[in-house]
Design a binder for these strands. Structure first.
Lengths: 212, 212
DNA sequence: TCGTTCGCTACACACATGTATAGCGTACTA
DNA sequence: TAGTACGCTATACATGTGTGTAGCGAACGA
């Protein structure tokens, strides 16, 4: 799709994997059947089983493929000397955007491999929070929250496309949303006074509702 | 659950609705079968059909119920004179938290009623963005983004619970996450210079990749 | 050249799901 | 008191799903 790829990677096995990633990303893991995937890859469903054994095993394979491919792409970008926020850069490639959508679905449904990736994301988010000195008493929860929010965004792509009246899969929609996200990251939605008030309110919640 | 409720609302019909909302919230719309819902409500699946006609109709009923109930709760809170951010307050009630989780699932899967609720959320977000003078050129995208991120958070509750090692369904976990969210809303993740640089980078993306 | 592996298809099995229908008992009413 | 509407169950049907198996043809090595 993007960088060089082994020629024999256009085999049926690779086509199945690509079709699976696309359908999983579009419909969620449970929403894509093995027959749909096989048909999208232009093969029989038996061949899918022949190559991967089961739907779950196919998903595992897609997990490691998506992770490896993403890491590889990230390294290429870094090696290319483009030293801006990697989190933003990675998603500029259509292939990376697809893999990202897939990984979000996979993380949401919670496979071991995907959960491990989420853990790593949160670890990085926590490190970043501490390193940059964000004003929070709970860097881990802070990092986890921004990770989950970032990922959650992808799950509402359809709704966002409708509300913004632009296809978020297109470059135009993608750029428009990212401009907004930059603004979200660069602005503040609560004043320190408001934040303090809300923190106190939350503590009161903890005190007044010990039951449940 | 929370405020007063008509006594005859404990009928099988109501139990089905409550069970549906709970299972839909936990497993997603497609992930909860009518048989599971019926069993959770302690009735036969035939009765579910007798009362609601179809799974889709049941979902529609849950949509309007959740919406009405949320609006009602919000009004009660406002009438009670507690004038803090309603967005936060609403979710302090366990029932409201459940309904919120249900609505997130329903919006994600995109029923007409749920889509209308998302539209309204985005409208409010846009208004708020303009009214408070947030520094963005695209208030609608800004409002839509924060709505989607807020909702998306709920879809990763399991992952967040694992990573933070606390049950997000408990008051303790809920409070901890909300403290972090307040910090996210009160802090800035990008300096104006960084934001400006990224905005320029995004514009360059728009220029350099007209194909696709 | 023969045998074996391998990519691949067709088909079948068991099960879950949404939907549909027949029928039973009770409560209310004319 | 007879009839009827209603709440409710049991069961069946059609379909889609993941999985399993039998078998075919080509390629490749002994």
């Amino acid at each position: 799709m993007c960088s060089e790829r082994a020629p024999d990677d256009l085999t049926a096995r690779a086509r199945i994997r690509d079709a699976a990633i696309r359908l999983f990303a579009d419909r969620g893991i449970a929403g894509a059947s093995v027959r749909d995937i096989a048909q999208a890859a232009g093969v029989s469903s038996g061949l899918l089983r022949h190559h991967f054994g089961s739907k779950e095993a196919l998903r595992d394979y897609c997990d490691v493929y998506a992770k490896d491919r993403t890491d590889q792409f990230r390294e290429e970008v870094f090696a290319g000397g483009k030293m801006t926020d990697p989190g933003f850069l990675v998603s500029h490639s259509p292939e990376m955007r697809l893999l990202q959508r897939y990984l979000v679905q996979s993380i949401k449904d919670g496979s071991p491999a995907a959960s491990a990736m989420f853990d790593k994301m949160v670890d990085l988010g926590e490190e970043w929070t501490i390193k940059t000195g964000v004003a929070t008493r709970d860097p881990r929860a802070y990092g986890a929250a921004i990770c989950a929010m970032q990922l959650g965004l992808f799950l509402f792509a359809d709704q966002l496309s409708r509300v913004l009246d632009v296809d978020l899969g297109s470059t135009e929609g993608y750029v428009r949303l990212n401009h907004a996200l930059i603004d979200v990251a660069a602005t503040t939605m609560l004043s320190p006074e408001q934040a303090g008030y809300l923190h106190e309110a939350m503590d009161r919640v903890l005190d007044t509702s010990p039951k449940e």
